[in-house]
Computed example of a mutant assay.
Amino acid sequence: MTEQNEKEFARNLGRAIADARRAKGLTQEKLADVIGVEQESISRLERGVTLPSLSRLMRIADVLAVPITSLIRSSSGRPVDQAQDLVEKLNELSGEDRAWVRRWVEEICAKLALQHRQ
């Protein structure tokens, strides 16, 4: 992983943690208190200044009641991770809505592929 990729991953992971924390209705201070760190540590994680250790990330995921894989996958730039993230979102939709999204994505991909060939 290049330094630029690591920085982008850290920012995306921080954003995913912040989104999950807000969805759970927790402040940075409360999350910090529950996992036993200073509020500034949570702020630095959420801003992408630092990456959490694996054990800390596991603790954060437990407190926020989200799968650790969802935090990592949503932060990844790898196509396979992005695809899996989309699969999980599609699974939440009705069959009719999934079919609509699939048609829409196929149209957009075809248009983008055509633009890149020109």
Rank of each mutant, 00 (worst) to 15 (best):
E46R: 01
E40A: 14
E46K: 01
R59G: 01
S43Y: 03
I60E: 00
S53E: 15
S43H: 11
T50K: 07
S55A: 10
P52H: 10
V63D: 09
A65G: 13
S41K: 06
E40D: 13
D62Y: 06
S41G: 01
T50G: 01
L51H: 07
E38D: 10
D33Q: 09
L45V: 12
R47M: 07
R47K: 14
L45I: 12
D62L: 11
M58L: 11
M58N: 11
I42N: 02
M58E: 15
R59A: 15
T50M: 04
G48C: 10
G48K: 06
A65V: 13
A61Y: 13
T50L: 08
L51W: 07
G36P: 08
V37K: 12
V63E: 15
I60Y: 07
V37A: 04
E38R: 12
L64W: 07
E40P: 10
S53M: 12
L54H: 03
D62Q: 14
I35L: 14
V37Q: 10
I42Y: 00
R56I: 13
R56G: 05
D33T: 07
A65S: 15
R44L: 05
D33V: 01
V63Q: 07
V49Q: 08
T50A: 09
V63L: 08
S41N: 11
E46T: 02
R47A: 05
A65Q: 15
R44A: 10
A32L: 02
L57V: 09
